[in-house]
Design a protein around this nucleic acid. Structure first.
Lengths: 338, 338
DNA sequence: CTGAAAGCGCTTACAG
DNA sequence: CTGAAAGCGCTTACAG
């Protein structure tokens, strides 16, 4: 295949390459006749602009980086899918960058990423969305970024929030309305600020019913299946066993279900279980998990879209939006039987 | 931040930019003294070569595309993780390209991808690894590619194979050795050639024991959880119920477990279940699934590594390697009780 | 062993 | 409305 460049097109259309460039970028100041002639040439030669050359001239890479450190593969896939869609809409590429928060020095790692890949912008997912050090670094380096689901860190930047506290409040209220009073809670990873947010919702709902939070009913998990197992044992083997467990993600909730099976506790008859996230496993196990569905794809799509807009109009205002989660009732929760 | 380019380095080190370029690319013909001077300048200025400029000059993008259409998110994540590692080792970037085999015209889609992103190479995962049309297109376009887990399509190219037939044979033999004779099978998606390969292993193992394959024990799934559910109902509600079900991936096996629970069939006491892939769900449900672990990350890592080598030495021979799967026994299979 | 020139395919000022 | 020149940051021939 002979290379088709802006020069071939210019020659073919009998205009200068600058004019071709103008048509390419939908700039004004081209006569309709010329524009059509050039577009005709595009078609006839099957011309595709070379993004690398364009990137060099613009000093842009048209690449967005996506930073994550999350144990949930389904979460990551959903994040990617939303980010990818937003990139494709605007002719950007997506670079994925898994990275351990507690691994090698974070800032060094990101510094290398940014300078070797010349990212135009970066989208932060939990737990990075709340990482002050990182956000500060990006700010001083003047690298555009957007945050997905930040919780604790207030920051003037594109922020697409979820309302974890409200969602956890709703799911706890569901359990309360089913007659449960002894409701245990399994916390997530301490590095993720959603952990506290979800716990707050649980505490708030109990508080409104005048129910005290019992420390033996609160276990420290870390969002992993394994931690859910340990937490479930600790909770279910305590002398006063709860009638419901609210695990702050679905993996841990699935682990509670496993432990319950092993202890021959029937779910939901003898134990109600609720999760969070609506991960695939929530509907792939039996009984299916009552949980909160977060619009993860939509949130990431929005974050990346706003990020790209920002890159192209740096003066624009930073936007903060909240996307609500949705309660999904499945078979793992039921009315308390006395 | 002032931009640090090859020119700044050259000025700082008191040499020409060509010499800097030579040091950068580890070319010979530079005196040790000069080389050190330049490297010193790299450090002092904290110089990072601009890959876009390099790409333009080389007519290279240093980007590898990863093509997939797979219902299993965990499979995709594992593929990505292996590919990413290989790319990072060699300073390439990874572009992910989910794509529906039966969606918009495949070749058009890939044509657009290749020409807009200027991929240097592309790694094909199932079901694309066996897609003759696609492989032919890449060949005529002279785009380097590597195939992960191809089965049916013979092709002179980098191919990292798994041995699905052998693995399915082993898992069927395990069930047979546990005393099972009535073993049902759930097939995968007809577009994936692993589907037939796995079925072949099942047929072979039964054949060696003189057991006929009963058509009512073979269900047509498509690798999705939902298809597993339908298949499980069909099989378990038949008049002569099997004592074991071998589903050709773990999602479908998990669905069999769900249906068994709903029918109050105890697993593994009354029904043994085996899966394939060792997806996370295999150990996240209870009882855990007996399955085959494939070294997916290693396979993809190897494929991408060889692909990048090939890009840099187009004359090199194409390599074909086979990676074996490993049988993992968990709680979902047990000795047949009469 | 080292460098000046030209070029990769596009764009941004600047002219007209 | 259109174009000739210079440049993005690097590399590939070609000289010396």
């Amino acid at each position: 295949m002979e290379k088709v460049t802006i020069n071939s097109v210019a020659k073919h259309a009998g205009v200068s390459k600058k004019t071709v460039s103008r048509v390419l970028n939908n700039e004004p100041n081209v006569s309709d006749a010329t524009r059509e002639k050039v577009q005709q040439a595009f078609k006839e030669l099957n011309y595709r602009p070379n993004p690398i050359a364009r990137g060099l001239a613009h000093n842009r890479s048209f690449i967005i980086g996506c930073l994550y450190d999350n144990p949930s593969k389904s979460y990551i896939t959903r994040v990617q899918s939303g980010a990818l869609e937003a990139c494709q809409d605007r002719n950007y590429n997506l670079l994925i960058h898994p990275c351990e928060l507690r691994g090698e020095p974070l800032i060094d790692n990101i510094e290398t990423l940014v300078s070797t890949s010349r990212l135009d912008g970066i989208v932060l997912t939990p737990p990075f969305s709340d990482n002050k050090e990182l956000v500060d670094y990006l700010k001083t380096r003047n690298i555009p970024y957007a945050r997905v689901a930040p919780v604790t860190l207030e920051d003037e930047s594109i922020s697409i929030k979820s309302n974890d506290t409200q969602a956890a409040y709703e799911i706890t209220n569901l359990l309360l309305s089913l007659g449960h009073k002894e409701i245990a809670f399994i916390k997530g990873h301490p590095d993720h600020s959603a952990t506290e947010a979800r716990f707050d919702g649980y505490v708030k709902a109990l508080g409104e019913q005048g129910i005290a939070v019992k420390s033996e009913f609160v276990a420290e998990g870390n969002f992993s299946y394994h931690s859910g197992e340990d937490s479930a044992r600790q909770i279910l083997e305590s002398t006063t066993r709860p009638s419901a467990v609210f695990a702050s993600n679905d993996y841990m909730a699935a682990a509670v279900l496993k432990v319950a099976s092993q202890m021959s506790l029937k779910v939901p008859e003898e134990l109600s279980i609720a999760g969070f996230d609506n991960a695939p496993i929530a509907r792939h196990i039996w009984p299916g998990l009552t949980t909160i569905a977060q619009p993860v794809e939509d949130m990431t799509f929005r974050a990346v879209t706003l990020l790209i807009d920002k890159i192209n109009a740096p003066e624009s205002d930073d936007i903060e939006e909240v996307f609500a989660g949705k309660l999904i009732e499945r078979e793992s929760t039921a009315q308390l039987i006395n």
